[in-house]
Design a protein around this nucleic acid. Structure first.
Lengths: 358, 358
DNA sequence: ATAATAACTGGAACCGTTTCCATTTTTAAC
DNA sequence: GTTAAAAATGGAAACGGTTCCAGTTATTAT
């Protein structure tokens, strides 16, 4: 492998000059530049990235710490990051987190040292004990989709999941539903995901506002994924007075709910309304009513925030809130007569209840 | 940031000794080791990865070049790679390819220089002109899911997609179908994906063997994804003598076909049998009959092959062929009477044709 | 006690860049 | 034709590790 010295020798110049040519310095005469370029191409020389990194003290790399990076919502965010980074000539290295142990390793090691010039953490809220580490980190850190009061010291791109959860529930309420189930992953996990918790908060807020009490038995949490959602939905549907609508905290989980409804012989949306969250590509296919969040954009903005912070670190952490949007498709419908239970609901103003067929 | 010299000074030892402690060399007395470890922890020292890389001439990084890394089949392969690499303490950097230009950039630059100690290329077949570059590359290259005669000089993990396509088609034939459509992405793309082409080959082989001629109008290609498959399927279903079964070259495309069937008022599998390819997680949910390929394993084996090659380069390129498996679910069924056309098919031995209702 | 050997240890040299300072060359001004 | 200023150039030092060789200390055998 030829080095910069070989090039210098071949071109008959000093190695400082070669370096200047490589870095487009104006302090090189045109004739010398040509001579050097010729030598570079003759020798098929390419500068060593590693040496460059050591000398510059920059890694030209961004680290992304991401839980379960096969989840569609996660990959879509990552795509936003990747596409943004490419334009800046930064490399992207990925630390996939599937266990708590690994999460802690990543938080401790990736961030501390010059493995990267900046870090993006997706969906993982750091523990309180890790916070000082991140806040005082020598390299900028940007959080994407991790919301938490105590996180105010860190730049981040978030979605107002409380509002999203509220909107979803509001949509069901406006369709006349009063018995509304909620299915999500575990609200408290060692990974400290915040989104389900917030959506749940929005859900509670909306029903409370309507004077509807939260029913424990309409609530199901479990591991992320279709299967757990299926089980929870099946259990809830088997209640003597099952809900007429279910809000699933993600589209993936909504799919589990749809499957459970199908297997229970319920037709959606006639017997059961279902709303999801995320608006994954698949949601359109399923005709799933859902809350759209701007996944790609969240990655893009996160990367942009990070690049800005690398250029010159802001004194104040930046916080960007991305909007959500209700996307009405085919899995939600107005409460129908057949969905009403024999016993009147406690709400005396319920118009529909008076139209009971049976 | 403390350096190794600071540690040496603090511990009152030479810097060679510190390095030996860091690298678990046995040539350090226990007492010295303790003293150094104490100094390391006092100073909160962490060695610089970059310096280490320069000195060792290794990057401790693996590059993955991957087209459209949000596709579920791709992320699943990557997960296999990631999980394997973690155990070896290698970093993983990702080059996402969504344009031909970028593909060429990646092939030229990522591979040539010590950006990485090894490269895994997923699903992209290099052009003939790039081949010598890869074969003579100073770092090992492993191809995953890229099959091509001319690729014999490179180590790779492949799936026998011809066999997979054959099996899928065979399954439909055995159910009595004779009018079988085939829907895939473009067989020829600038990215030079090979899988659709091979599946198509298997399809042709199976129908030919059965004495069935290939019908151009039963064949639809287009951009990857649900939408294009939907359009092609809709066109094919609208033919005066539409197929009774469709083989989609991927589960994603099978979803487009299912959607088209639904919109055309056809019920699956009664009016139309559909088989996909990949066995994505979603396939189970949809009850889609499909060909399972071992996506995760392909990544894992690719990474393992690469790690082996880094340890000591094999003289012969390794080629590993992963099996496929037919997974029968609910979208394929025996040809039913109602699916037969009025005009008899050209096959005189067709028993079913004699039972035509109308 | 002494020599031979083994176990440790210190630090110079090296990896391949960039940067900065000193020096040389060119240009412009009078 | 001088001189001052500007432009171009060469190369040492630095980045922070690892490695290897030479030197020191400890151990063992006689």
């Amino acid at each position: 492998m030829p080095t910069i010295r070989d090039v210098a020798e071949k071109a008959g110049v000093g190695l400082g000059t070669v370096s200047r040519v490589l870095n487009d310095s104006p302090l090189v005469s045109e004739s010398t530049r040509q001579r050097v370029l010729q030598a570079i191409s003759d020798l098929n020389y390419m500068p060593s990235l590693t040496a460059r990194r050591l000398s510059l003290g920059k890694t030209m790399t961004i680290a992304v710490i991401v839980p379960f990076f096969t989840r569609p919502s996660v990959t879509e965010r990552m795509r936003g990051i990747e596409n943004t980074l490419v334009t800046c000539d930064y490399d992207l290295t990925i630390y996939n987190v599937e266990t708590v142990k690994r999460r802690d390793e990543c938080m401790q090691h990736m961030i501390r040292r010059e493995r990267a010039d900046g870090v993006i953490i997706i969906s993982l809220s750091p523990r309180d004990e890790d916070l000082p580490l991140l806040v005082n980190s020598e390299i900028p850190v940007v959080l994407v989709d991790a919301n938490h009061d105590s996180l105010s010291g860190l730049s981040r791109v978030i979605v107002d999941d409380v509002a999203g959860g509220y909107t979803a529930t509001r949509h069901l309420l406006e369709l006349g539903h009063e018995r509304i189930g909620f299915i999500s992953d575990y609200l408290e996990t060692p990974f400290n995901f915040t989104s389900s918790r917030e959506r749940f908060q929005g859900y509670q807020q909306a029903i409370n506002e309507q004077g509807i009490a939260f029913r424990e038995d309409y609530f199901g949490q479990g591991p992320h994924g279709r299967q757990a959602a299926y089980k929870n939905a099946a259990r809830i549907m088997a209640l003597p007075d099952p809900p007429s609508a279910i809000f699933a905290a993600s589209d993936t989980q909504a799919m589990g709910v749809l499957q459970a409804a199908r297997d229970a012989g319920l037709s959606v949306p006639d017997d059961l309304s279902v709303i999801g969250y995320d608006d994954l590509e698949i949601a359109e296919y399923l005709g799933l009513t859902t809350i759209r969040q701007l996944l790609y954009l969240s990655g893009q903005r996160g990367a942009e925030l990070l690049m800005d912070a690398i250029q010159d670190p802001p004194k104040e952490p930046q916080c960007e809130v991305l909007p959500t949007e209700l996307v009405v498709r085919g899995t939600t419908a107005h409460l129908s007569g057949s969905q009403l239970l024999d016993q009147p609901t406690y709400n005396p103003n319920n118009q529909m209840a008076n139209n009971l067929p049976g």
